[in-house]
Computed example of a mutant assay.
Amino acid sequence: MARKKDKKNGKGSAGQNRKSSEDFITKYQQKADVISTDSGLMYRVIDETDERRHPTFQDSVEVHQRILLTDGKVIADTYKTNSSEKFSVEEAIDGLTEGLQYMALGERYEFVIPADLAWGKKGNRSKIGPNAVLVIDIRLIDIF
């Protein structure tokens, strides 16, 4: 009976996350407007601008973002809280570091970040489990 004490925290096990992530990626890749990079990052452009400024690895950015797991569980949502986030591009997870550099100021993208470009086999020991793919809806508000 002691095994019944397993906590349900939504993170999932490494095996569960790997399988659901593979299924999600396979389905996502079939969308017509998805762009895939050599690293495995996938994205869709939601809103484009005529702006020419793109962040570089050395820049910091201000963004609004909604971070979800492939099951739809929301990890963070600055759109909802109306509280943007500021951080340096180089400090972000690898998939976001890569993706931000494709974006121009004011644009909104949806990134699907494979586990190896996110929190990997260990997760972040909080809300993101091992082998979890992240879906990030992000708008680039400022570059500094």
Rank of each mutant, 00 (worst) to 15 (best):
W119E: 10
N124R: 02
S88L: 05
V133F: 11
E85K: 05
K127S: 12
L69I: 02
G95F: 10
K4C: 08
S39K: 05
F87N: 05
R44E: 14
K7F: 12
L134Q: 09
Y28A: 03
K5H: 10
L105E: 06
S60E: 09
Y102P: 00
G12F: 11
K121N: 12
L140Y: 03
D137K: 02
R66A: 00
K27A: 10
Y102W: 07
S21R: 10
I138E: 04
D94V: 09
I35R: 03
I128D: 08
A14Q: 07
N131K: 13
K80T: 12
D77L: 02
P114S: 05
V133P: 06
K7V: 15
K122S: 13
S21Q: 08
P55H: 06
K8F: 14
R125H: 12
N124V: 03
V89C: 07
A76L: 05
V45N: 05
D94S: 14
R3T: 13
K5F: 09
R139I: 12
H54R: 14
A132Y: 04
G123H: 06
H64A: 02
K4P: 02
E51H: 07
S60R: 06
E91P: 01
A115L: 01
N9H: 10
E51Q: 15
I136C: 14
L96C: 04
A76W: 00
R125I: 00
V112Y: 09
D137F: 05
H54M: 09
T37P: 01
R52M: 09
P130N: 14
K31C: 06
I138L: 13
V45Q: 08
R52G: 02
I136V: 15
W119T: 10
K5Y: 11
G15P: 00
D38K: 15
N17R: 05
K122Y: 10
S13H: 07
G40N: 06
E110S: 01
E51A: 15
N9E: 15
E90H: 08
E51F: 01
G95H: 10
D94G: 02
T56G: 13
K4G: 14
E90P: 00
K7Y: 11
V45Y: 00
E107M: 06
A118R: 05
R108Y: 04
E48N: 10
N82F: 09
I113K: 08
G123L: 10
G129D: 14
R3Y: 14
K80E: 14
R66Y: 00
A132G: 13
N17M: 05
